[in-house]
Each structure stands twice: as C-alpha cells, then as structure tokens.
Write a protein that binds this DNA or RNA. Structure first.
Lengths: 168, 168
DNA sequence: ACATTTAATCAGGGGCCCTTGATTATTATT
DNA sequence: AATAATAATCAAGGGCCCCTGATTAAATGT
C-alpha cells in the first residue's frame, strides 16, 4: 500500500476517533466535561500553570480580548472555581486565583480513563504510547514553527500539562 | 510499568492530541472546518448517508428537536449546501437535498491529511492504523451496548463514513 | 498639575447549538 | 364532516465563546 494512502487512512481514523469521543462521552461515559483550550477552560489552564494572575496578564497570555477574559473569569468565579482580589500594589488590578474547588476541578478532569483503552494489550499500549508521543511531538514542532509568539508558547504549556500529569 | 499507569498515560496522550488539534488547526493548518457530529455538520452527514430526507426524518434520526432541525437546515440552505423542495406526495413535507456544493463540502472535508502524520514510518503507520482500528471498534461496541436506539445507530453510520472514504 | 496610559467594567452585538410553547397547514382517522 | 395527528414554522429563550466601542478609576509620565 502506498504511503499516501496510509497517511490518508490514518487521518481518517483520527478524525473518526475524534467524533466518536463526543458520542462516547454523551452516551457511554458519564464523564466530567473536559477542560479544553477554549473559553473558561483556557483560563483555568492558564491559572493551573501560574496562579494569581491579573486579568490583563491572562488576556495577553491567551491572546483573547480583555472583555472576553473578564467574562470567563466572572463565570468561573460564579462557579466558585476562582476567587478575585484587588492587588495591594495596584488598585486597578484584579488578581485571579484558583480556589480549592478550582484546583480539584482541574485535577479531576484528568482522571478519567476511557474504558476502550483497555482493549489494548500491554504491548499494544506501549506501541500506541510511543506512536502518539511521536505524533504529538511533531505537532508541537509545527505549531512552534508556524507561530512562536507568546500566546502559542502558552498554548504549548497548557497542553503539556496533560503529559506532566501522567509522568508520575 | 503497571497496566493501569499505561492506560492512564494513553488517556493523557489522547486528550493532549485532541486539544492540540484545535491549536494546530488554528495556527498551522489553514484547514476547512471539519464536519462534526454537531449542529449543521450532523445534518450534512445524515444527508450524505441518505439524501432527500424530510426534516422530521432528520429530526428523529439525529434525535434533535424539529425546531433545531429547521434551524440547521435553514442555515445550510443559506450557505447553498442543501436545497429544499415540497414533497409532491405530502404537501406538509419539505424534502432536504444536498446540492453539488454540499456534496463537495462533505468530500473536501475528508481530504485534509495533517502534515504531522508523515512523521511516522511506513511500518509505524501500519501499527498505528491497526491500533486505532482496535480502539475505534471497542468504542463502537460500547456505544451500541449503552444505547442501541435508532439515533445511536445513526451516529454510528455517520462516523463510519470516515472509514468508507479511505477504503478505496 | 495636567495629560496619557493602563486595567477593568459596562453596553451591545454576533455566531453556533440547543430547548419549550404556540400556531398554521396538511393529512389521516373516526 | 369533524376530530386527531403530523410537519414545519414562528416566537422566544438559554448557554457558551468570542468581538468592538465607550466609560470609569487608578497609575504613570511630562
């Protein structure tokens, strides 16, 4: 089989997997909504990386508007996942900090291991892990090459968190 | 390494991959938005599977409300991806059909092969394909076991489309 | 002291994916 | 013929993720 066909086949599998996880989560697995690199999840991940940030720091790190930042922060505060406090050094600044509940939210979102993974043998798991590692590394490379601005680097930090979680 | 840890590691990789594709698509790859099993994409996939459906057929197949169906169909029509016609057999019925543009939209959404896949060797591609196939099959199994209603079966048909595309 | 900049909020908007309730027109059943 | 069921639309609403423009308060620069 030609190399082009193989890569197309894999692209299809990955796409299929991606859509299936949505259905899987809806129907099979009563999972907590995952943290995503979107909206409120973005802010949570930013704070997981460095707590006690001002809103404008969050805004520039995530490359989203201050108003969007304020909105997401406000929603997170409403859910008691973050707390707000005026900075003593600068009364304009609102410091955003994770609450215990917020920290737990982040930790627990990484704890779900989908059942379907257990269909693999031990050896297959090793293989899969190695291949996924390779793919992910290539993705990071492409991302950095395309746009090495602060925002992207930050995105990289965010995503790296998944990895750190499982190194122990 | 213990089996539990391995599966956790893989869960983490998959989660990381999933979030990274969002960033990858945003930054690296100027891709067409993918068809998803959500909203308008759902309707397109339904029509790809069987064209010329009534809105209420779509509604029941996708297990969404008639009003949502109408909304998505209307949006797709606005984008010239579907055309509407009153059924001659029953004047209540609006038949929804893919336009040429709609068909092209669907086809082209499967054509993008992300560059990062090419980091794998031929052998690795075979391995990865085999492992993904196994995982996806397990997912389908779980999905069917959990809820074998018509809607779910339909979702399965939708997702199967990715596979069919690459069998040739 | 005044002008400029910065941080956050308010006002308002858009898009997308969903929902419930009500209405109108058409078809099927009694 | 009258009633009940069906198909689609209209009205209205909500949530989430985003945005631009304007305003207010605090800090910094001249």
């Amino acid at each position: 089989m030609e190399r082009k066909i193989k890569s197309e086949l894999i692209a299809g599998k990955l796409a299929e997997y991606e859509q299936l996880t949505k259905i899987y989560d809806d129907i099979v697995q009563d999972v907590k909504p995952r943290l995503t690199v979107e909206g409120q999840g973005k802010v949570l991940l930013a704070l997981a990386d460095e707590d006690h940030l001002s809103q404008s720091q969050i805004s520039s790190r995530l490359e989203i508007s201050p108003q969007s930042t304020g909105e997401f922060v406000s929603k997170l505060a409403k859910r008691d996942l973050v707390s707000l406090s005026k900075s003593e050094k600068d009364r304009r600044i609102n410091l955003v900090s994770l609450t215990t509940k917020g920290r737990e939210e982040i930790e627990s979102s990484f704890q779900e291991v989908p059942k379907f993974i257990t269909v693999l043998s031990n050896e297959e798991m090793d293989q899969f892990n190695r291949l996924m590692t390779k793919i992910i590394a290539a993705m990071y490379e492409d991302i950095d090459k395309a746009n090495p601005t602060l925002g992207v680097k930050f995105h990289k930090l965010l995503a790296n968190r998944y990895l750190k979680q499982y190194k122990k």
